[in-house]
């Protein structure tokens, strides 16, 4: 059964208070052991992988070398055949055959190493997944326990229980009343500000038709005309 299901069962059974284990300690120990095993497997896997990859590189290098040798001997054999020296050509051909046998061995070794590398990588991936998975599940257990403990601290601190805190509706009303009061105060302050400010006097004067407020182009024209008449 997954840890998730175990926690569901425990909570349905009412084990949601502090001190009540949601998952038995043995299961947790097994999980932790499996995480440690997987981590060790990955460490060992990394070391093995380095070794095998080096071995494969060695084989691959040998394959390249031998292939080059074969090409060279083949050219030589062809030259000898052109010259009609079939005896020596046969000797070279035998040498080529020998190298080809050796080449096959190294090619085979390389492919064996390649398979090993692939399966080692797959094994490490699996171990990583196990770790991730187990850690997530352990996390769930530990979080459940932490929440229970936190809950118990909060409840104790609030005496007969956090439930005392609210009647939720009443709390909401009180918060809203406070918010309203704050807004009212801010509005009042704004009003006071604007009443005391210089802006209002000008606004009042303008409203009364007195003051600096321009009444448009006609006013300006009239003023300019008056000025022009005065200058004459």
């Amino acid at each position: 059964m997954s840890i998730f299901s175990k926690i569901v069962t425990a909570i349905r059974g009412g084990a949601s208070e502090a001190g009540q284990a949601v998952v038995d300690a043995n299961a947790i120990r097994i999980f932790e052991q499996e995480i440690r095993d997987s981590k060790n497997a990955i460490e060992k896997g990394k070391r093995d992988l380095t070794g095998i990859m080096a071995d494969k590189m060695k084989e691959d290098r040998k394959v390249t070398e031998l292939s080059a040798d074969i090409t060279q001997y083949e050219q030589k054999a062809l030259q000898l055949m052109e010259k009609g020296d079939d005896t020596l050509a046969l000797e070279v051909a035998e040498k080529i055959s020998e190298i080809e046998n050796e080449l096959a061995i190294h090619k085979n070794a390389s492919s064996v190493f390649e398979t090993k590398i692939a399966s080692l990588k797959e094994l490490m991936k699996k171990a990583e997944r196990t770790i991730r998975d187990h850690e997530r599940e352990l996390n769930m257990v530990k979080t459940t326990e932490s929440v229970q403990k936190a809950q118990s601290s909060i409840s104790k601190n609030y005496g007969s229980g956090i439930g005392k805190l609210g009647d939720a509706k009443e709390s909401l009303n009180r918060i809203k009343a406070k918010q309203q009061e704050r807004e009212d105060r801010m509005k009042a302050a704004e009003q006071l500000d604007s009443e005391n400010g210089a802006g209002t006097l000008n606004e009042k004067l303008a409203a009364a038709g007195v003051g600096e407020k321009s009444n448009g182009g006609n006013d300006v024209m009239a003023r300019l005309k008056a000025k022009a008449a005065g200058n004459k």
Partner: peptide, 18 residues
């Protein structure tokens, strides 16, 4: 808040009820 598990209570001004 004291207890087995460390808990920090946060009160927001004006929302003391929550």
């Amino acid at each position: 808040i004291p207890g087995d598990q460390e808990v920090m209570q946060v009160i927001i001004e004006g929302r003391e009820e929550l």
